[in-house]
Design a protein around this nucleic acid. Structure first.
Length: 261
DNA sequence: ATGGTCGCGTAGCGA
């Protein structure tokens, strides 16, 4: 069995206490991190490697930044989402890792937020989603287990947000955003939560403001997106809500899939 | 009610 997690940590340096605690307790095989807000020079490689992980990252000063941690060595790493050489935002890293039954491929994705919308930031989001779809179409041709994990900044359905009417103009929930997400899934991908659970009100993010956590005013935006070979072999999916408690939590919580790879 | 809270970096932006 292989466990693959995604977690937007909202700064790796500030979150190291919570991250090391969770890595020790949950001990996932692979972890996709987003919003590390760190350059390569400032990333805490030593502390994470000491917990038994190989680490590779796409870093950026102050904003964005993604990483993949893996207890098994990387066979191949691809950095940056293809399709726009002018895009300098650190939002994509992909790796091939050896499973017990052959290699599997994992990507750590930090899809643009897109607010305010409409506007240039929303256009960037939609363009990024088009590029992700194109890249994923290429990956599907390998016909291998593929897990595209990350903060998609997309609320798939009304049941995934505490106040759908209040969110209708947000970049994360606009009909055009949801339609493009469905178009992305339509190339032959499966959203793990929809397959495994699908219940309403299973959130992965609660804003720091307005007592959102205390009032359970959350949204579900962190997803594991699977190729057929991954969807056929997922055996469990859990949202680790407990990490939203405690001192200096991230506003996102981990989503963890277990696969018979 | 155009508020509220984080993180980065030390003003104001991004979320």
């Amino acid at each position: 069995m292989i466990t693959i997690a995604t977690w937007n940590v909202n700064s790796i340096r500030t979150r190291m206490h919570a991250v090391t605690k969770w890595l020790t307790e949950a001990a996932p095989d692979v972890v996709c991190l987003q919003e590390i807000k760190s350059t390569t020079e400032n990333f805490p490689y030593m502390e994470i490697e000491a917990l038994g992980y190989n680490v590779d990252i796409v870093g950026q000063k102050s904003y964005n930044g993604v990483a993949i941690l893996s207890k098994r060595p990387f066979e191949e790493v691809i950095k940056g989402l293809p399709g726009d050489e002018t895009d300098e935002q650190a939002r994509y890293i992909e790796a091939v890792i050896a499973g017990d039954k052959g290699p599997f491929r994992v990507a750590s994705i930090y899809l643009p937020n897109g607010n305010p919308s409409p506007g240039p930031k929303y256009d960037y989001k939609l363009g990024w989603m088009d590029r992700l779809k194109s890249h994923a179409q290429g990956l599907l041709k390998f016909e291998e287990a593929l897990v595209l994990a990350g903060d998609y900044n997309v609320i798939p359905e009304a049941k995934d947000v505490y106040d759908p009417k209040g969110w209708i103009d947000e970049a994360l929930f606009r009909p055009e955003t949801r339609a493009k997400f469905q178009e992305f899934l339509g190339i032959g991908l499966t959203e793990a939560f929809a397959q495994m659970d699908g219940r309403a009100g299973q959130y992965t993010f609660w804003d720091y403001q307005r007592g959102a956590w205390q009032n359970n005013e959350g949204i579900r935006i962190d997803h594991l997106i699977l190729s057929p070979q991954a969807a056929d072999n997922i055996v469990d999916l859990k949202i680790h809500k407990a990490t939203r408690e405690g001192i200096k939590p991230s506003d996102h919580v981990p989503v963890v899939g277990t696969f018979d790879f």
